[in-house]
Design a protein around this nucleic acid. Structure first.
Ligand code: FES
Ligand code: FES
Lengths: 150, 150
DNA sequence: TTAATTGATATCAATATAGTATCAGTTCTA
DNA sequence: TAGAACTGATACTATATTGATATCAATTAA
């Protein structure tokens, strides 16, 4: 059971880059290279994010992408929804004979509670939070070409 | 984002039937018919559940399947794991430049926490609990041929 | 002996995910 | 004003996962 697909994964990483470099346009190519994301695939994701008002773009030479929303206003729950669709349990798990009256179905209720728990957790994690966490982990020491590591 | 696939869905429903009719062998055919699950597909699921020691079978005429474990000892978390694999986030979300030291990676930690929350919730819901909930909803009035309804 | 049943396994179809290719249009810069 | 560096838009291909079917041998009750 995969929680995050590549699309979401890549989108998050792209946003982390854009969120770290405020005020300048960052090209798809540089994101692709730095984050090791397939170029054309990434392009699609970026366009999708424009449609959802998360980022803006500028065409032509020296163009690229830039955050539109504040990083703190982008919970990864939203990205999951955009790239993987709403968290859903099953059209209707116990149909027919078993569950006669869906309106007050206990099972359905049970499962939907979990759905909420999950969403609530994913709502707490925003791009902004991730950026701060990353800075903390990396000790705020990174310029842009930090290689090395373990 | 689908939380439960058909396999898990079907498996749960099959177990609910077996759990409700203790002490007798229930044929795949009858489960298939009552629950509207594709026969051969269901067969596969049942065999998988035998391998995982959840149920036992008896071959030949009047044969079928029967619970092996107590319904209360089967959390749907286990079924999800069997039929959809362990809940996993992403091989490693923020590789390369971004996340240098995975060992103490805050992001990874964050995501794994959610993983635990989800699993804990799914652990609370057992087949036994679902059966009792269903009985409550259906007012304990069902024999085996209850049709009607909304 | 035969019908009802599971065991085992092979195959297929549908859908979702991941990735590639192409071309037109825009903008900076020389 | 040409051309390189970009994005917009869209069509396409490949791979993996999920969902479903088919077949035949072995077992058992009647
Ligand atoms: S599960 Fe769908 S209504 Fe009860
Ligand atoms: S996300 Fe994989 S190590 Fe930080």
């Amino acid at each position: 059971m995969k929680v995050l697909t590549k699309k979401t994964d890549y989108a998050i990483r792209a946003l982390l880059m854009l969120g770290s470099k405020r005020g300048v346009y960052v090209s798809a190519k540089s994101i692709s290279t730095e984050q090791d994301i397939p170029y054309q695939f990434l392009r699609g994701l970026l366009q999708e994010m424009i449609r959802h008002d998360l980022i803006v773009s500028k065409e032509g030479a020296q163009g690229g992408f830039m955050m539109k929303k504040e990083p703190d206003e982008i919970p990864i729950a939203q990205l999951i929804e955009v790239f993987q669709g709403k968290v859903q349990v099953s059209e209707c798990m116990f149909r027919k004979q078993i569950c006669a009256n869906r309106a007050r179905c206990v099972l359905r209720h049970e499962i939907m509670r979990i759905e909420q728990v999950v969403n609530r957790e994913f709502d707490k994690i925003t791009i902004g939070k991730l950026i701060r966490d990353l800075d903390a982990v990396n000790g705020m020491t990174h310029g842009s070409g930090e290689k090395g590591g373990s």
